[in-house]
Design a protein around this nucleic acid. Structure first.
Lengths: 179, 179
DNA sequence: CTCATTAGGAACCAAATGGTACAAAACAAA
DNA sequence: TTTGTTTTGTACCATTTGGTTCCTAATGAG
């Protein structure tokens, strides 16, 4: 069941909802039609479950990294969000879902917003940790800015090779001294 | 022909490629199958032409605004990129195309990159105009940053109501004094 | 007007779509 | 082993898909 969900996440993440047909989905999940429809009702439900799986696996792991990483500055840590991915053309599932599905499926929008908020909170906490004198509003503003940058980065990374130098850019936004 | 292209742009912009079926597309373009296939070969070609139309209409108009607007600071002008749209759920066609199509269609990727570059150039030129002493590398870096923010903004705007205060955020990035 | 060319529209097509029905098989309880 | 229940695989279904054909209606040149 868990491996089936992981398979669903993988293929929806790569191909999106509309471009993934049932045969694709079934083989990615390792299920046949009978057991798929018994367990997941329909394609849309499987997509929503795949988003939940992404939340529990990928988002949680990212939040964990942002929370626990040992770096000298906030920007050193936050730059990890922009580190080269081994499969940049799949981008970020949250971003993909926001673009393709959120406008026409409120449940997708809700989940995407929830995951976005988790990322923003983790970013903000990391900023606050290194800048304890900064007031919360400013930290939240900066976190929101970096979150927007992150999604822009993920979107553009699907079309072109990613540009670098993110650490110093983030440092500048946070008024940290660039090395 | 022009109005047909505009119709194609509108529906692909709103719905994306895969989620737009032929009946949808034909009625948006005001054509029947016969004349559609005569003029556009197939759905993919129509999509590519719709991207070109977007380039000539929307991107050009945006570039024009960035080039000619009369503002005191660069951030005042660039904040226009983030102004509330009357249909935020359709986002930006470039961003939509990058996310949905670019990884699986190199011609879409090329067009998206070309339009992105036009926007980036216009942003950079606007920055340079207000900061003549800034060296070109720094101006390009800032322009790239703002372009990433723009796409992130467009992606997130499809899922949730846009957050405001962009002028001051851009001002901060450009080291312009926030009012 | 005549004729050639083009554009438009509707019927049609094979293939693919998401989803269901149902029988066989695996499993658990007794 | 027998029974009842759940899971799995497959054949099937109506509908929709993108695309083609072909006939008719305009259109324009002479």
């Amino acid at each position: 069941m868990d491996t089936a969900l992981k398979g669903a996440m993988d293929i929806f993440w790569r191909q999106g909802f509309a471009a993934t047909n049932l045969p694709d989905l079934l083989s990615a999940m390792g299920l046949t039609r009978g057991s798929f429809y018994k367990a997941f009702t329909d394609k849309e439900t499987a997509y929503l479950k795949a988003l939940d799986y992404y939340d529990g696996a990928i988002v949680s792991s990212t939040v964990d990294t942002l929370t626990t990483c040992q770096t000298e500055t906030a920007s050193d840590c936050l730059a990890l969000l922009f580190a080269a991915s081994k499969e940049p053309e799949r981008g970020c599932f949250i971003c993909n879902a926001m673009v393709e599905m959120a406008p026409v499926n409120i449940r997708v929008a809700t989940k995407a917003n929830h995951m976005s908020a988790r990322l923003r909170d983790a970013i903000q906490a990391r900023i606050a940790k290194h800048h304890p004198t900064l007031d919360a509003d400013r930290a939240e503003e900066s976190a929101d800015l970096i979150l927007h940058l992150y999604f822009g980065h993920q979107a553009m990374g699907k079309s072109t090779e990613a540009s670098g130098q993110w650490r110093s850019k983030i440092a500048h936004i946070l008024n940290e001294s660039p090395v």
